[in-house]
Nucleic acid binder design. Structure first.
Lengths: 170, 170
DNA sequence: GACAAATTACTGCCGAGGCAGTATTCTTAC
DNA sequence: GTAAGAATACTGCCTCGGCAGTAATTTGTC
């Protein structure tokens, strides 16, 4: 905010924020943190956090049936996923069931208790999202999603080319 | 990606994502993670991570002079900040200097070694950001920032009204 | 058919970040 | 002038997520 290097009027290759740094990154971090803390606060009465809710939701919607599915779908670490599932199973919201054809895989099924809770959890989720998107026209939400999607794609491309970068790669 | 419920054309009160859940949240998380891992990869050769770079940068720009300043400015925990500063001091990039007028505060100054590194670190930061914003028109970047800013403001408002929510509040 | 490679779930280990509590110092109120 | 409150920096403690490594099982190759 204070110091400001001289900005060349030119701008073709690296045109973005000569100053202001990673403010896009900061804003994304804060917006995401606000969503997460809001969701955690709404879910606290049910003894769940945002990640546990997200997993339960994906399973209920049939987006995934196994831990590996969930990890691929949610870009989540497999080790951490095991622990999330442990917690959900402890709470009786989830059941693990070994597959008989392929004995490596464990099918995940939302237990009746979990299914009973889901409507309330979903309500909490949409409430938080609606709160944060108040005043947004549908077209604006779409534009925001497209911007984020483009950044993600750009990041993948950059990661593939510069070699390194932990998880964004192929 | 896979499932997609029919979307009602109507939209007044809770119009946002009848299905697709918190996809805005997911996209933000992934975009942010891509930025962070890209930045960490670029900074790894210098033995720094994204947070350490951000702190060094803010100090160099005069946005903050003390740990408390930094925490307010960056919405960061004071305890964690102490540890970040410890690491930077260990590496010789930063110096702590107790204030004489108010002996509670410790002024933070970027050490010569840190100042010497900063141009390279800045280059890494802008490189990562440019990579992720490739193909974005300046107006699009502005729009993205405004969207994020509105979400943050909405989140603060919601937090103030629903009572809870950890850090978003006043 | 046997052996290498891949896949799945899971387990330590580590770093990061948030929260609560502490000691010190300053400010404010009476 | 003193007591209460606030502010600053710092310290444990806890949770979470990523990484690497492991055991069991399946798939693919020759």
């Amino acid at each position: 905010m204070s110091r400001r290097a001289a900005i060349k009027a030119e701008s073709p290759p690296s045109a973005h924020p000569p100053e202001g740094g990673l403010s896009v990154g900061y804003l994304m971090g804060r917006a995401r943190a606000s969503l997460l803390s809001g969701l955690d606060a709404e879910l606290a009465p049910y003894g769940l956090n945002a990640m546990q809710y997200a997993v339960l939701k994906q399973l209920a919607e049939g987006s995934a049936r196994t831990a590996a599915d969930l990890c691929r779908y949610m870009y989540y670490d497999t080790g951490s996923m095991t622990r999330v599932l442990d917690r959900l199973e402890e709470k009786g919201l989830l059941r693990r069931e070994r597959c008989r054809e392929d004995r490596r895989v464990v099918f995940l099924r939302v237990a009746p208790a979990g299914r009973a809770q889901l409507p309330r959890l979903r309500a909490a989720g949409t409430r938080v999202l609606d709160d944060h998107l108040k005043g947004f026209a549908p077209a604006e939400v779409d534009a925001l999603k497209r911007f984020l999607g483009r950044m993600i794609d750009n990041g993948k491309f950059a990661a593939d080319n510069t070699g390194l970068q932990g998880k964004g790669g192929k």
